[in-house]
Simulated scan of single mutants.
Amino acid sequence: MRRILLLAPALVLFAGCSPAAQVPGTPQPSPSSASSSAGLPPDPQPARTAECPYLSEAQAEDANGQHVTEVKVSDDQPHPACFFYRPDGGLQLTVRVYVGESATATALVDKAAPVDTSNPASEPAGWKGGYQPSDDGVVYAVAKGPAAVIVSSNQKQSIKARTVAKEAISALKL
């Protein structure tokens, strides 16, 4: 018994150095899913107070149904993301615009509103994507060619996020 107690720390040490064994039935991440999310641009972050180039405060208030007290934008250029805040300081609405590679635009939309779990979205005409509830409200994400627009709202009604997406798309000069 005493020998086992003396050897136990050595066995634990050696066990930590050995390669991890594959547990039968445990799926390994597929190379395609790992590389597709790794190749996406990082999520935008609010960097400074500024006007949103795609949506005015009044449009955001009308569409989302809440007063806007502050608007911040990300440092992403030439298409910054917009962050609209409500009176209590909480985030109520975000508008993310991406223009670049078609595959990346589609992947960003699929990340925000996965094809397998979201409802299909096809507004405005020619744009495709999805919408679904999120932890904090709803997301509406669509792409067309090399462009993607992703709107997150703290409201549960998808029509509000869809309205914002349509307003932002109409303001884009593509």
Rank of each mutant, 00 (worst) to 15 (best):
L6C: 02
L7K: 10
A8G: 03
A8P: 04
V12Y: 07
V12D: 08
A15M: 13
G16N: 06
A20I: 08
P24A: 01
G25Y: 01
T26K: 01
S32F: 03
S32G: 01
S36V: 15
G39H: 12
P42N: 02
Y54P: 01
L55M: 14
N64R: 09
G65E: 08
V71D: 13
S74K: 06
D75N: 12
D76F: 07
D76G: 00
H79N: 12
P80E: 12
F84V: 05
R86Q: 15
R86A: 12
D88H: 02
D88V: 04
Q92E: 12
Q92N: 09
T94I: 05
Y98C: 03
E101P: 00
A103P: 00
A103K: 15
T104K: 08
A105E: 03
A105H: 02
L108W: 10
D110C: 07
A113E: 09
A113N: 07
P114G: 02
T117W: 11
A121R: 04
G130P: 01
G130S: 09
P133A: 09
S134R: 12
D135Q: 15
D135N: 13
V138W: 08
A141C: 06
V142N: 02
A143E: 13
K144I: 05
G145D: 07
P146Q: 09
V149T: 04
V151Y: 06
N154L: 05
N154S: 13
Q155F: 05
T163W: 12
T163V: 08
E167V: 09
A168M: 09
A171G: 03
L174C: 00
